[in-house]
């Protein structure tokens, strides 16, 4: 197994609040890794470190290493924009842009352009309309949304149902072709049917991507993940194969949590 992401003694502070207390974790490539734990334990804070979304929060300091492909993304000479292109994120509340469905998906590719020639450091140029159409269709198909929206690509993304909006957000992320996709409770605002669709999608995605998903729904973690990490009060308590975590947890806290004896 190859390690896609390795965090090393990761600390996060919100002003004085020590929200993440030295998390060291290996996340494997082409697997679904679930992050579970009671609310406020630092799950979101943790995965937002992986694509440096915490940079945006005033008063937030991150210490420690996050290695992706062996490179520390917190290094000063790393371009945060490039990090985020390579590591996509889907948020708890669906947040389509108030633009058309097409524009939502085309947004990322438009920004980044295409690499002209294959010899390593190719120049980038704009997509042709054809290429862009292809990317949009492919991404929407991959996100299992194409059939539902192909006749109304110019309708606003905000006009879709909650579940559709979330799949649009996934398609939008796929369109920039990241290596890793982070999901922060992507189903918590959705009904069970929409949730089931997204879960299928997540399992399907791991063929091509490394997937990290935060969830407070333990059944969900058990259903779709290969490995599970349990957080409590800013500490990584335990991490292991999902089956092992749910059937034979090693730590007392973990057991209490998965048996429902802890909020």
């Amino acid at each position: 197994m190859t390690i896609a992401i390795r965090t090393d003694d990761l600390h996060v502070y919100f002003d004085k609040n020590h929200a993440l207390k030295g998390v060291s974790m290996d996340i494997e490539m082409n697997q679904v890794t679930a992050v579970i734990g009671p609310s406020g334990c630092g799950k979101s804070t943790f995965i937002r470190c992986i694509n440096r979304m915490n940079d945006l929060i005033p008063g937030c300091t991150v210490k420690g290493k996050v290695l992706v492909d062996g490179m520390d993304i917190n290094d000063d000479d790393v371009d945060v924009v490039d990090v985020r292109r390579r590591i996509g994120m889907v948020f708890q509340k669906p947040n389509p842009f108030p633009k058309s469905i097409y524009e939502n998906v085309a947004y990322g590719p438009r920004l980044h352009g295409v690499v002209e020639t294959g010899n390593g450091k190719g120049r980038r140029r704009k997509h042709t309309k054809r290429e862009l159409d292809e990317i949009v269709e492919h991404s929407l198909r991959r996100a299992a949304l194409w059939d539902e929206v192909k006749d109304r690509m110019d309708k606003s993304g905000t006009s879709l149902s909650g579940g559709q909006q979330q799949r649009l957000c996934i398609a939008r992320t796929l369109a920039v072709d990241p290596e890793i996709i982070l999901f922060d409770e992507p189903c918590s605002a959705l009904d069970p049917i929409a949730t089931a669709k997204i879960e299928d999608l997540l399992v399907d995605l791991k063929k091509d991507y490394t997937v990290v998903i935060v969830t407070h729904n333990m059944q969900q973690a058990a259903r779709i993940s290969d490995r599970t990490a349990f957080f409590y009060l800013g500490d990584l308590i335990e991490m292991g194969d999902t089956k092992q975590i749910f059937e034979r947890p090693q730590k007392e806290f973990t057991e209490q949590y998965i048996t429902g004896r802890m909020g």
Partner: peptide, 8 residues
């Protein structure tokens, strides 16, 4: 291109 975007 990335450099360009940054410079802008």
């Amino acid at each position: 291109m990335m450099l360009n975007r940054r410079a802008t």
